[in-house]
């Protein structure tokens, strides 16, 4: 009798342990926040890295947890960017929402970017339900190319290839203007990234997240235990699109600009690369990957400005060939080797 109870207690504890905060996580966020004081001259770059990290995190939700490969996350990023940029541009001086929220308010812009990206994400999610990884790659790539071309062609709306000038977001919370040193931008990007991360963390550690991991492992079995697999995939794809939309909106607001470059194919490809680099399925992979990617870009670009991507390719190949699961996979393997059975990251 007592044995059974002990089993139950142990089982409950081990399930809940999956979502518990661990010290490496706390350390990660503490270090990230302290960079504000440690490298005050690089705040703009750091904001950009965090935005890139959020985009990669959005891919992690669909790829790392639900197992959907995508080369089109840049489309949602771009949609978020243009939405926020247009709201900031045309909202300046317009009648405020509900009488007190300016249309060009940054937070409202994030909501707008998330909604537009989410709507398009939902509409296109049905295309990725069927087919293999290869068809999913092609379909998501196709959607991204269409959005990119629309950004180029709809000159009256997007400014075409010149981009959208005069993007003037209102001061953050009505108080702080985005400054030249990027201080406000850093704090803004950090807080939004952290909040979005908490949402993602909650999602993947919930029953919903567990069902995504199940689909990734065996969708036939998932269906035959009565799981509405397609509905789950549509949901996570839409949520991920909203995440990417928020990231894009932040980039447009902090750089006060939007251009077809923000929807370009290389966004999707870079973000996917960053995630693979950092390790998919950990939530932190995109963030760590974004740091390493941009630092390498800076460092290698300093040595061989034209060929830095060559070295990037070399590192990527080494990582994929010799380490499964990217940088975080490497860390996990190391931990399992030196500290067997001591909880996980």
């Amino acid at each position: 009798m007592s044995d059974i109870d002990a089993d139950k207690v142990r089982a409950r504890a081990s399930l809940l342990a999956e979502g518990r905060w661990r010290w490496p996580e706390v350390l990660f966020w503490a270090v990230a926040a302290s960079l504000f004081f440690l490298v005050p001259t690089k705040l703009t770059l750091l904001s950009e890295i965090m935005i890139l990290g959020l985009l990669a995190l959005s891919i992690d939700l669909v790829l790392g947890f639900a197992g959907i490969v995508t080369l089109g996350q840049g489309a949602f990023f771009g949609l978020g960017a243009y939405t926020a940029a247009l709201m900031a541009k045309h909202g300046y001086g317009a009648a405020p929402l509900l009488g007190f929220i300016p249309i060009n308010d940054p937070l409202l812009g994030l909501v707008g970017g998330a909604i537009v990206a989410g709507i398009v994400g939902f509409a296109t999610s049905f295309l990725v339900l069927r087919g293999s990884d290869l068809t999913r790659l092609m379909v998501t790539l196709g959607v991204a190319l269409i959005v990119e071309e629309l950004a180029n062609k709809l000159k009256w709306l997007t400014g075409g290839s010149d981009g959208l000038q005069g993007v003037l977001p209102a001061p953050l919370l009505g108080k702080w203007d985005f400054d030249l040193y990027g201080q406000v931008a850093f704090i803004y990007a950090f807080v939004i990234l952290f909040v979005m991360f908490l949402v993602a963390r909650q999602l993947v550690n919930s029953q919903f997240g567990m069902s995504l991991k199940a689909i990734k492992q065996n969708s036939l079995r998932s269906r035959t235990i009565g799981m509405p697999v397609n509905a789950r995939l549509v949901t996570v794809y839409t949520i991920a699109a909203m995440f990417a939309g928020v990231a894009g909106a932040m980039l447009a607001q902090t750089t006060q600009f939007a251009s077809p470059d923000m929807v370009a194919f290389h966004r999707s490809a870079d973000a996917l690369l960053i995630l693979i680099f950092g390790g998919a399925g950990y939530l932190y992979g995109g963030l760590v990957g974004a740091v390493v990617f941009r630092v390498m870009q800076d460092f290698l670009g300093g040595i061989t400005p034209q060929y830095w991507q060559f070295w990037l390719g070399v590192v990527l190949l080494l990582l994929v060939l010799f380490v499964r699961g990217g940088i975080l996979g490497l860390l996990r393997n190391g931990r399992d080797k030196f500290f067997p059975k001591s909880g996980k990251d």
Partner: peptide, 22 residues
């Protein structure tokens, strides 16, 4: 636990951790 949650139509709960339904 996953199979039971799906049986009870609670498989899409996102606001509480998996395993919190003891």
């Amino acid at each position: 636990v996953l199979a039971i949650a799906e049986r009870e139509s609670k498989g899409s709960e996102w606001y509480r951790p998996a395993g919190s339904r003891s």
